[in-house]
Measured scan of single mutants.
Amino acid sequence: GTEIELESKNGQREHYTATSEDEARKIIEKAVRRGIKRIELRGASEQLIRDMQEIAKQIGLQYRTDGSL
């Protein structure tokens, strides 16, 4: 699965493990709508990382991946 670590603007951290790319995408989209400061992805697919970079650029988000592409 993909591990997703979120940090909201007030510094609250949340951790999710998505079993599918679809689920990961839903978690990320929800977080973005809620207003999130930072997202870290571990074990994400190349496609998901590309999507994440696109989203991050659009809304000026900090993100990090573990680089295991």
Score class of each variant (00 low, 15 high):
Gln12Trp: 10
Ser45Trp: 03
Glu5Gly: 08
Asn10Lys: 06
Gly67Phe: 02
Asp66Glu: 06
Gln58Trp: 03
Ile27Ala: 01
Ile59Met: 15
Leu41Ala: 01
Ala44Ile: 03
Ile28Met: 06
Gly43Cys: 11
Arg13Ser: 08
Ile27Pro: 00
Glu54Thr: 12
Gln58Arg: 12
Ala44Val: 05
Asp22Phe: 07
Ile4Glu: 00
Ile28Ser: 00
Glu5Phe: 14
Glu54Lys: 09
Glu54Ser: 07
Ser68Ala: 05
Thr19His: 15
Ile28Val: 08
Lys57Met: 11
Ser68Thr: 09
Asp22Arg: 07
Leu41Gly: 00
Glu29Lys: 04
Gly43His: 10
Gly43Arg: 05
Asp66Leu: 02
Glu29His: 09
Tyr16Asp: 01
Gly11Tyr: 00
Ile39Tyr: 00
Gly11Asn: 04
Gln47Ile: 07
Glu23Gln: 08
Leu69Val: 12
Arg34Ser: 09
Val32Ile: 14
Ile4Asp: 01
Glu23Val: 10
Glu21Val: 08
Tyr63Gln: 15
Leu61Cys: 15
Ile49Thr: 06
Leu41Trp: 01
Lys57Cys: 11
Ser8Ile: 13
Leu61Val: 08
Ala56Gly: 04
Ile27Phe: 08
Ser20Arg: 03
Ile36Cys: 08
Arg25Gln: 03
Ile28Gln: 10
Thr19Lys: 09
Ile55Asn: 01
Met52Trp: 02
Glu23Leu: 05
Arg50Asp: 04
Lys57Trp: 07
Thr19Val: 13
Val32Leu: 14
Arg50Pro: 00
Leu61Met: 05
Thr2Met: 11
Leu6Asp: 01
Ile49Pro: 00
Glu40Gln: 12
Gly35Pro: 03
Ile55Asp: 01
Lys26Pro: 00
Arg25Cys: 05
Glu23Tyr: 04
Glu7Tyr: 06
Asp51Gln: 09
Gly35Tyr: 02
Asp51Thr: 12
Leu6Ala: 03
Gly67Pro: 05
Glu14Gln: 07
Gln47Asp: 09
Arg42Gln: 07
Ser8Pro: 05
Ala44Met: 04
Asp66Arg: 01
Ile36His: 01
Ala18Pro: 11
Thr17Trp: 12
Ser68Lys: 07
Glu5Ile: 13
Glu3Val: 10
Ile39Pro: 00
Ser45Lys: 01
Gly60Lys: 06
Gln58His: 08
Leu69Gly: 06
Lys30Ser: 13
Ala24Asn: 00
Gly67Asn: 04
Gly1Thr: 14
Glu21Ile: 10
Lys57Gln: 09
Gly11Asp: 03
Glu5Gln: 11
Gln58Leu: 12
Thr65Leu: 04
Lys9Trp: 11
Ile36Ala: 08
Gln53Cys: 12
Ile4Val: 05
Met52Asp: 00
Ala56Pro: 01
Ile49Trp: 06
Ile36Asp: 05
Glu3Leu: 11
Thr2His: 04
Asp66Ile: 04
Glu7Phe: 07
Ile59Glu: 15
Gln58Thr: 12
Ile49Gly: 03
Gln62Gly: 04
Glu29Ile: 08
Arg33Gly: 12
Met52Phe: 05
Gln58Val: 07
Arg64Ala: 15
Gln58Gly: 07
Gly67Cys: 15
Thr65Cys: 15
Gln53Asn: 08
Gln53Tyr: 08
His15Asn: 11
Gly1Ala: 13
Gln58Glu: 14
Glu23His: 06
Ala31Gly: 04
Val32His: 02
Ile49Leu: 11
Lys37Glu: 08
Thr65Asp: 15
Arg25Met: 07
Gly60Trp: 07
Gln58Cys: 14
Glu46Ala: 11
Gln47Tyr: 03
Arg25Glu: 01
Gly35Phe: 04
Thr65Pro: 15
Lys26Gln: 11
Ile39Cys: 03
Ser8Ala: 12
Glu3Asp: 10
Thr17Met: 08
Gly1Ile: 13
Gln53Lys: 10
Glu54Cys: 10
Thr17Ser: 11
Thr65Ser: 14
Gly11Phe: 01
Leu61Asp: 12
Met52Asn: 00
Thr2Asn: 01
Glu14Ile: 09
Leu41Ser: 01
Gln53Arg: 11
Thr65Ala: 11
Ser45Thr: 06
Thr19Asn: 09
Glu5Leu: 14
Glu23Phe: 05
Ile59Lys: 08
Ala18Thr: 09
Gln58Pro: 01
Ala56Trp: 04
Met52Pro: 00
Arg33Gln: 14
Ile27Arg: 01
Ile55Gln: 02
Ile28Cys: 04
Arg38Asn: 07
Arg33Trp: 03
Ile4Leu: 05
His15Thr: 13
Ser68Pro: 06
Ser45Cys: 06
Ala31Arg: 02
Lys37Ile: 14
Ala18Gln: 03
Arg13Asn: 06
Arg50Tyr: 10
Lys37Ala: 10
Asp51Arg: 08
Ile59Asn: 15
Ala31Tyr: 03
Gly35Ala: 04
Gly1Pro: 13
Arg64Val: 15
Leu41Val: 13
Thr17Tyr: 13
Arg13Val: 13
Gly11Gln: 02
Thr65Arg: 02
Asp66His: 05
Glu29Arg: 06
Lys37Cys: 14
Ile27Cys: 04
Lys9Arg: 10
Gln58Ala: 12
Glu40Ile: 13
Ala31Trp: 04
Asp22Met: 10
Ser8Gln: 10
Ala24Ile: 08
Gln12Ile: 10
Gly11Arg: 02
Ile49Arg: 07
Glu46Cys: 14
Tyr16Thr: 02
Tyr63Phe: 15
Asn10Val: 06
Ser8Gly: 12
Ser68His: 07
Lys9Met: 13
Glu40Ser: 13
Ser20Thr: 12
Arg38Val: 07
Glu14Val: 06
Ala44Tyr: 03
Thr2Ala: 07
Arg25Gly: 01
Ala31Val: 08
Arg25Tyr: 08
Thr17Phe: 14
His15Ser: 09
Leu48Thr: 05
Val32Tyr: 04
Glu40Ala: 13
Leu6Met: 12
Ala44His: 03
Ile49Glu: 07
Lys26Ile: 14
Ile39Gly: 00
Glu21Asn: 07
Val32Asn: 01
Gly43Val: 02
Thr65His: 07
Thr19Trp: 11
Arg38Glu: 04
Lys37Gln: 12
Ala24Thr: 03
Arg64Met: 15
Gly43Trp: 06
Glu40Tyr: 11
Ile59Arg: 11
